[in-house]
Amino acid sequence: MTGLQIGYAAMLERFAPAEAVALAAHAEAHGFSGVMASDHFQPWVPAQGESSFVWSVLGAMGERTRGALGTGVTTPGYRMHPATVAQASATLAALNPGRHWLGIGSGDALNEHVVGGYWPEAPDRINRMFEAVDVIKKLFTASAAGRDVKHAGQYFRLESTRLWTMPDVAPPIYVATAGPITAKRAGKTVDGLITTGAPREKLEHLLSRFAGGARESGRNAATLPKVLQLHLSWAPTDEEATANALREWPNGGMRFAGSDIRSPFEFDQIARMVRPDDFEGRMLISSDPDAHRAHIQSFLDLGFDTVHLHNVGRNQREWIEVFGRDVLPKLRR
């Protein structure tokens, strides 16, 4: 797998923190490279059953693994001010030199509404996200130079301060998006792109827009990380793989944006309408490891250099061992 990374997606809304740490270590022992941990305050549906604090879990994962550590993704500005996110990220990077990247998104009401603030429309959320990125970058740059910085913007204020704990090299910042406008803006301003599995045409357009933004900022998109989080359902039989998807990850079959839904119990009511056909084109459900290999390879062929895999079943160890043996060694950049 020279030149690419196939990592483990640790879905903290599904596994207790100690179990998630153990699974990340198990994945690395079987050929997975790096871990991407979700930042949730609540699970998507009650059956998923967990939602631990991502920064604590990533710290523990850093002690048990040796690969990259990323947030997939965190949202500054609601539960935590961008300065607090910057401090958490810098601390994790100081503990794990050269291993941590900071993944940032515009957020979902499911997680961010809990602090009781106004939940804005999508364009405001995106503008808020990019201003948060600006605050974090200012803190990283000034703190590395040993000086204070301040910020007064539309959404955030920062009085003169610095991060007193900084790694030798600031963590790279990646922005998560499924939209072409945000992808172009990310190409202009941050260090990499994160997105999730989608039809080929949509992803081609997304990567093209990201590359266009990079060119406008005088950079080559070919050198910038492009990260894909890929949900899948593998089990020894197709029937079991389908049952796992319906029971454990019905949100993957919902054909609409759920960013404004506030409760796992609301998602659960909608999930009752999800049928196996709803996953088609959104998530591969198969007992055939070679079908999954071809599916993953198709995204690598598009230009993604890092893919973090999430198997929706509870059969994590079995899946890790099968893919580590039969899938990962056959993937090529």
Rank of each mutant, 00 (worst) to 15 (best):
A68C: 01
A178C: 07
N111A: 02
V169H: 09
H292P: 03
T91K: 14
P123S: 04
E112R: 10
V149A: 04
P97A: 10
G303C: 06
A214V: 11
V57S: 12
E13R: 10
G218Q: 00
L203H: 06
A214T: 11
M36A: 12
F299Q: 05
Q269W: 01
H151T: 00
A241N: 07
R128A: 05
G116S: 09
L95F: 13
V327R: 10
A271K: 00
S106K: 10
S286Y: 08
K184M: 13
D288C: 14
S52C: 09
L284N: 04
L12Q: 11
G258P: 00
I6Q: 08
R317T: 15
K188A: 13
E248L: 12
T65P: 00
N220L: 03
G192D: 13
A211M: 09
A90N: 10
F265G: 00
L23S: 11
N96E: 01
A170F: 12
L102W: 07
L206T: 08
R317W: 06
R66W: 00
D301V: 04
T91C: 14
E159H: 04
R128K: 13
F53E: 07
M254G: 00
S143V: 12
P236C: 12
S286F: 07
A37L: 11
P276S: 11
H81G: 02
E204C: 03
F140S: 06
E112Q: 11
